[in-house]
Amino acid sequence: MSLATDPRPPLPGWVLDAYNILCDHLTGQDHGESQHHVLAIPRDEAIEVLLSTDEIDLEPGDADHALTRLIDRGYLYEVDSELRVTQPPEDL
């Protein structure tokens, strides 16, 4: 998602790993309103997902930092303490 013209350094790999874990978690759930393809998760639940995975080892502060970085870079956006994926995966 990072544009070639973005002067900021790329996100660290572990932050992108956190994003992929969240997307995998969201796409693996039955959302009932799947015709809208809104991938959303409460922030607290997103932190729990990141802390419970075996794919990366994060402390609570690290998980929160990863979410903040993903929001700052436009991978996620927040609405009423719910995180939503800005650009859902193509295969939904």
Rank of each mutant, 00 (worst) to 15 (best):
P89Q: 05
T5S: 14
Y75T: 00
L67Y: 00
E55S: 13
M1R: 14
G74K: 03
D24R: 15
E78H: 03
V38G: 08
E59D: 13
E59M: 12
L58M: 11
R84D: 06
P89T: 05
P42D: 09
D57S: 13
W14A: 07
R73V: 09
G28T: 04
A66M: 02
P12F: 09
G61A: 09
G13I: 11
I41Y: 00
A40V: 05
I71K: 11
Q87N: 11
N20F: 13
G13H: 13
V79D: 09
S2E: 15
L22K: 02
P9K: 06
P60Y: 06
V38W: 14
L16K: 11
G32C: 03
E82L: 05
H65L: 13
H31T: 06
P60K: 08
R84V: 06
S81Y: 12
P7H: 01
T5K: 09
D24S: 15
H36T: 14
D57L: 11
D44W: 06
T27L: 12
E33G: 10
Y77E: 05
L11C: 08
T5M: 08
Q35I: 14
G32K: 06
L3H: 14
H37N: 14
R8L: 15
R43M: 08
G61H: 05
L26C: 04
E33M: 14
V79F: 01
G61M: 02
V79S: 07
L22W: 02
L50C: 07
H25S: 13
Y77D: 03
P9L: 06
E48A: 11
N20C: 11
I21P: 02
V49P: 01
Q29A: 12
L50P: 00
I47A: 10
Q87P: 00
M1N: 13
E82S: 05
P10W: 08
D6Y: 02
I56F: 05
E78G: 02
L50G: 00
T27V: 15
Y75A: 04
L26T: 01
Y77L: 01
I41V: 10
I71A: 10
E59L: 14
W14N: 11
G32Q: 07
A66L: 05
P89E: 01
Y77Q: 02
I71N: 03
R43F: 04
T86W: 03
D54E: 14
N20Q: 15
S81Q: 14
L92Q: 09
H31D: 04
E48V: 04
G13D: 15
G74D: 03
I47T: 06
E45S: 08
S34H: 11
E45H: 09
T27S: 07
S81P: 01
P42H: 09
G28E: 06
E59W: 10
D91T: 10
T86R: 03
L50N: 03
A63D: 03
I21K: 02
E78D: 08
D91Y: 12
